[in-house]
Design a protein around this nucleic acid. Structure first.
Ligand code: MN
Ligand code: MN
Ligand code: ZN
Ligand code: ZN
Lengths: 140, 140
DNA sequence: TTCCAAATGCAACGCCGTTGCAATAATTTT
DNA sequence: AAAATTATTGCAACGGCGTTGCATTTGGAA
């Protein structure tokens, strides 16, 4: 269960207006901690789902450092709550994700992630994007 | 320069008919060795670009183990020639990719790639997908 | 050369990201 | 507390692109 108090606090600390829609969306994210949610998954759980408003809400949340995008090899966008203290245009969370090839469930992997890959000489690597694919505990 | 002989040989060894369209597409891939190409980039270089035919051609190439998809964090699909000897429904190439955040140039990284990331207990990891993002040598 | 299976090119559908705009709601100011 | 200001919402609408169906054309085998 998510306390309304925490929802409001989170919206305020990220300079987002406390509207009914945003409270509802943020609650969904906070309730499914560590799991990345797609637009469809979110829409299906909203009282009054409007895909355009959701689109802008997610953009605002991402912009203000509340959620981050989890890349999907299939092209589906999924968002998850930022674990670190991210702010506007300053996302600090750099972690891998796991995605189940059967149910699509996508989770953030907080644990140690070591990546060693060399780009050609003259190239500058700024970010690393790692996704593990396989079967989740329920689909195994 | 790509020899027509090599193009035809590659199509035949992967059980693909040697049509004008496919020869042209394959030549583009072979000419830009190691670089992943988007549909747009391919279309702009084709004599008679038809997006549907290109779509089906890429699907056939991928299916027959000629090319592989390079995930794009932005949702754009890019394909590159398979380096390993991949066959129908059997892609062996497991390598990282680099993508330039400015020009979009995407290349396959053949070099050693070491990934260490833990999925939760009870999860089964089957594949690892790593993309490095940054600036290429021309955009630096 | 004849025939069959596959590939092509075109129309068409649907999904989704994106933008504009007027109505509505949240926050700030008086 | 009311008015003013500013942001958000919901709707219409456009465009790109993945996808499929179908008639026509082409490649490869007989
Ligand atoms: Mn994450
Ligand atoms: Mn590659
Ligand atoms: Zn699963
Ligand atoms: Zn570049």
């Amino acid at each position: 269960m998510v306390r309304e108090e925490d929802i409001l606090q989170k919206l305020e600390s990220h300079q987002l207006r406390k509207t009914a829609f945003r409270k509802e969306v943020l609650e969904l994210f906070m309730a499914s901690e560590g799991e990345a949610l797609s637009n469809q998954e979110l829409e299906s759980q909203l009282d009054n789902p409007d895909r355009i408003t959701l689109y802008r809400t997610l953009k605002a949340f991402e912009d203000k450092g509340l959620i981050h995008l989890a890349a999907d090899s299939g092209g589906i966008s999924r968002y998850a709550l930022c674990l670190a203290d991210c702010t506007t245009h300053a996302h600090h969370d750099q972690h891998a994700h796991f995605q189940c090839r059967t149910c699509g469930k996508t989770i953030c992997l907080e644990g140690e992630v070591v990546i060693r890959a060399q780009a050609p000489a003259g190239y500058k690597v700024e970010r690393e994007n790692l996704t593990l694919e396989g079967l989740c505990d329920e689909c195994i």
